[in-house]
Nucleic acid binder design. Structure first.
Length: 401
DNA sequence: TCTGGGGTCCTAGGACCC
DNA sequence: TCTGGGGTCCTAGGACCC
């Protein structure tokens, strides 16, 4: 039986949600109707475009580009700061509304959901009618608009939701692939990024149809697994399921671009402490243990070095992970100016999956300290409680909760 | 490029085992 | 050692997504 899939994608999510929040706060201005972007803090060297209004898009502003360039393209561009706690709230509002239609919802990102409606179509309604109903309700009840892709698999639903925007519903059934999808440039295909584009061009692949018409064996020969996947995508083939049960994270990371390049291991270490504290806090909150610690340094020339090491035992202990991270930093740092520092814990496992007896007794004291601090953070706010070491960190750096 | 931050997945190469 | 072949595990790096 064919699957009945919807892909719901919020139009200009961060910008729309900011607009709705501002209107709710009494603003007379709807920033969706002017050239506007959501961006990071330029003073903190995080000045990239995170979202744009349609008018900003019309002058050629692109997501991910430096605000500096965006401003050049548009003199009267309005720039608003991102606020992820607001985005999370609106994302949840959307998810709750969608849940009235099916329990099989995959939260693909903060602003995108896949819905498997196969066993959940209401009597007398088809998939397309449900899509229109959702579209209308989201706009009326939540105040922002979505694009909805209607198809028989996830890939085609996702491609469909990317057609004309905003506030549109599009179908992409198998018999429509040739007419609606094959004429698009191959760069529009999901999972075709800027690195593979030049390679495709050399092979004479310009459109999705060009890719679809290549021999699959040739694509596999050149690109391996990746080649197989995108050839199937170009042909509208995708049998993956909507993953509606919440999955445990596989890694947890935190990184920060520094306000200026660091040349000094001590300063790097101070930042590292704050990053590790946040990562291990989240790790404990998710009831997981880490088996691998990874650190990452980005130089002023954007070269990225990373080092990782497997731990003797899985842990969620701040001190153990910090010690490992410090060692890794010593091994990674080669005295070039550092632009970004990152810490990640990897190969996570469930806490109850492993034997805790030995682990518990060897670092009982540290575990208790972590617990006390976590409780205080939970009670008074993450940023209100801090270890003494973090007090020394550059006052210019704004860490995240 | 004056180029963020959070993830997932894949691959190549080396170490080590029998 | 002028050293085979297959398998697993580990690390570094890179591609892609939003």
């Amino acid at each position: 039986m064919k699957k009945q899939i919807l892909h719901v994608d919020v139009n200009n999510a961060f910008l729309s949600w900011t607009a709705v929040e501002m209107l709710k706060d009494g603003s007379k201005l709807d920033i969706r109707t002017i050239p506007a972007i959501i961006g990071g803090d330029e003073a903190q060297r995080k000045g990239v475009v995170l979202a744009k209004s349609n008018l900003a898009k019309q002058v050629g502003i692109q997501t991910g580009e430096p605000i500096y360039f965006a401003r050049k393209k548009c003199k009267n561009l309005q720039i608003y700061q991102s606020n992820f706690s607001i985005y999370k709230k609106y994302s949840n509002d959307l998810y709750n509304l969608l849940q009235e239609y099916t329990e099989k919802i995959e939260r693909f990102s903060i602003d995108e959901c896949f819905m498997d409606m196969t066993e959940y179509l209401p009597k007398g309604k088809n998939l397309l009618q449900v899509a229109y109903e959702i579209s209308k309700r989201v706009k009326e009840e939540l105040g922002f608009t979505v694009n909805i892709g209607v198809a028989h698999n996830k890939l085609l639903a996702k491609m469909a939701s990317d057609f004309e925007k905003p506030n549109k519903v599009h179908t992409l059934y198998e018999e429509e692939i040739e007419r609606k999808m094959w004429n698009l440039p191959v760069s529009e295909l999901f999972m075709v990024g800027r690195k593979s584009l030049p390679k495709f061009e050399k092979m004479g692949i310009k459109t999705i149809k060009d890719l679809a018409k290549k021999e699959q064996s040739q694509m596999i020969k050149i690109f391996g697994k990746y080649g197989k996947m995108i050839w199937e995508y170009a042909n509208g083939i995708d049998d993956s399921e909507v993953v509606y049960e919440e999955e445990k994270p596989k890694c947890i990371g935190n990184s920060i671009t520094l306000p200026y390049d660091y040349n000094n291991l001590e300063k790097i270490e101070e930042v590292l402490v704050a990053l590790v504290e946040q990562v291990t806090y989240r790790l404990r909150n998710s009831n997981m243990l880490a088996q691998v610690v990874n650190v990452q340094l980005k130089t002023n020339e954007f070269k990225i070095y990373s080092h990782q090491r497997k731990l003797m035992q899985p842990t969620d202990n701040t001190k153990i992970i910090l010690e490992e991270a410090k060692k890794l930093i010593y091994e990674t740092y080669n005295k070039t100016p550092i632009r970004l520092i990152g810490v990640r814990v990897d190969k996570l496992c469930e806490k109850n999956e492993i034997q805790l007896s030995l682990f518990d007794t060897t670092c009982e004291k540290q575990t208790k300290i972590d617990k006390v601090i976590d409780n205080l953070k939970g009670k008074y706010g993450y940023d209100k409680i801090t270890r003494a070491s973090k007090m020394n960190v550059d006052k210019n750096i704004k860490f995240k909760d």
